[in-house]
Design a protein around this nucleic acid. Sequence first.
DNA 1: CTTGAAAAGAACTGCCT
DNA 2: AGGCAGTTCTTTTCAAG
Lengths: 151, 151
Amino acid sequence: MPDPDDTDLAILRVVRANAALSTAAVGRAVGLSQAATWRRLDRLRKAGILAGRELALDLEALGFGVTVFLGVKLAAKARVSLEDFERAVSAIPEVRRVDHVLGRYDYRLRVVARDIADFERVFRRRILALPGMGEVEANVMLSERRLPGPL
Amino acid sequence: MPDPDDTDLAILRVVRANAALSTAAVGRAVGLSQAATWRRLDRLRKAGILAGRELALDLEALGFGVTVFLGVKLAAKARVSLEDFERAVSAIPEVRRVDHVLGRYDYRLRVVARDIADFERVFRRRILALPGMGEVEANVMLSERRLPGPL
DNA sequence: CTTGAAAAGAACTGCCT
DNA sequence: AGGCAGTTCTTTTCAAG
């Protein structure tokens, strides 16, 4: 499959900004017909560049108002495999992301809770009980901003 | 607006798992007609719980293979407003997320680059040049896992 | 690549229980 | 609320220039 050309990038910029646009509207924005736009979108999908749609759930509107980022260092002595840790952490409902990272920490977790009291419960009963837990560092999220990113 | 009931939660669980499903298919999964499902989805959208669809771009497939998380502490002396910092950091194309946090750092950034050499360029010329930059800590992402989260 | 069109499917509306 | 039926819009595919 050929790499995306400038027209493809223009299409990606449009759909990234407005995922609810029809192919005809995207075509109008980049100066292509509906059919041609569809063919390009189809190619981008098949190339794995457009990896599918997602529905953004507003967890705050559902009562989960607290988001905490945790940096986790596995205990040096503990002979816990990364797979075991990942399996255990993935079983905690409040954990929304598990990033395996290189640096001061081994994992970065994104955790949600209804409020601080709820977070304390999750932290004490679930997070601290994870196999191989070493150091933990926490950052409470105040606000977030998503940016379009490169392209 | 009334809070979501059990049926709403069932619908949210279904669409969260598969955002590409038609309202008719969602209805089948929860035992409702197409129209009833659509009306509930519409209500959830208007309540802000379903906050809109997004197209997932696979940046790796586009050649951005490196993701780095940065923890940033603003310099104590610098009299830089948070707004100034946020404006400047938001202007860097490679920055995909800016999270204002409480804890050891003031901000957590998610940055993408084509490769490590590209990241070094962004880091030296853009990140280190941000107004008010104090300490920085970096974590290179090895792998990530998104989880459904609570509900 | 374009236009035009047809068929299928999904989204939306109104009416009735 | 929920179901049914119908309308409208989009997607998807095709033929022809």
